[in-house]
Write a protein that binds this DNA or RNA. Structure first.
Lengths: 156, 156
DNA sequence: TATTGTTATACTCTATAACTATA
DNA sequence: TATAGTTATAGAGTATAACAATA
């Protein structure tokens, strides 16, 4: 209890499911503004602080390696990412952002942030903090259950 | 503050974005268990308490009407939904669940619920309630901003 | 042989444009 | 003409299976 206003209380399951849909729709809108899909946007987000191999990308995105080939092909064709031969493993390939890819990811991320700020502007600072912490806790619980890396920062 | 444990605090933006990704991944896994996609699962969820026209489905799912044609085609071919002529408008078509569609949606929903319960099991009742309420509040804020119907119950 | 990545193929999902049929 | 829906087409995204190359 104790929270702002008059929102209809669905149970926690419906509330979280709906929340995930509106957040995805929001992200999708900002991605579309850069003519990108959500999965391409996630790719840019993952590469923000990493230069993974194709194999590692497959694990991070939970996709088949053949899907990664296509994904990276299309991103590379648009100049957003670059394949570079791995110095150590000669049959591994590392993927990294180009400056354009970094800028594009930032634009999407910034727009998304603004929308989240707008959607949470009627919450008190305490409520925002609680929401943030509770969301992180749930994410960590999922991460613990499965093999996730929590450090992913998957937004954009 | 004041919440369970030791989760790393990303800001609210990253926390919500990550939450939406893990929830979508969870839903996707349960949908895949029934050999369905997320969008097919959303279709089943929307039809749980409605018999919309194709046009209304396009609005509810925010997709082009031609996309709805294909979506409903594939669902109908699998026996999950049924097209019925609208009694009043003779060129409108209503879509409704078949018993199989209803059962399939329920299986996915139940599995998803179990996962959410598992992921929130370390939260106190108050924390669960707060999370639910805060999530609903954010969803309502989005709904108010755009033209959404909050009553969608979009999970499964 | 085992691992990394690509290719070939097939299917789902999506939008745009053109079409039919009802109103 | 305007509205509801379908069809044709094109492209992104995805998985499976088969392949090449490195280890």
């Amino acid at each position: 209890m104790s929270v702002a206003g008059e929102s209809p209380d669905l149970g926690i399951v419906d509330a979280l499911a709906q929340l995930s849909f509106v957040l995805q729709a929001t992200l999708s809108r900002h991605a579309a503004g850069q003519d990108l899909s959500i999965i391409q946007t996630r790719l840019l987000g993952i590469l923000r602080d990493r230069e993974p191999t194709m194999q590692e990308l497959a694990r991070l995105l939970e996709l088949d390696k053949s899907s990664i080939t296509g994904l990276v092909d299309r991103a590379e064709k648009r100049g957003l990412v670059q394949r570079t031969p791995s110095t150590d493993d000669r049959h591994a390939i590392r993927v990294k952002l180009t400056p354009l890819g970094r800028r594009t990811g930032l634009v999407i991320r910034t727009g998304f942030q603004a929308d989240v700020a707008e959607a949470t502007k009627d919450l008190s600072d305490t409520e925002k903090s609680d929401l943030s912490t509770l969301a992180s806790t749930v994410v960590s619980a999922y991460a613990a259950k499965r093999g996730y890396t929590t450090s992913t920062k998957n937004s954009s």
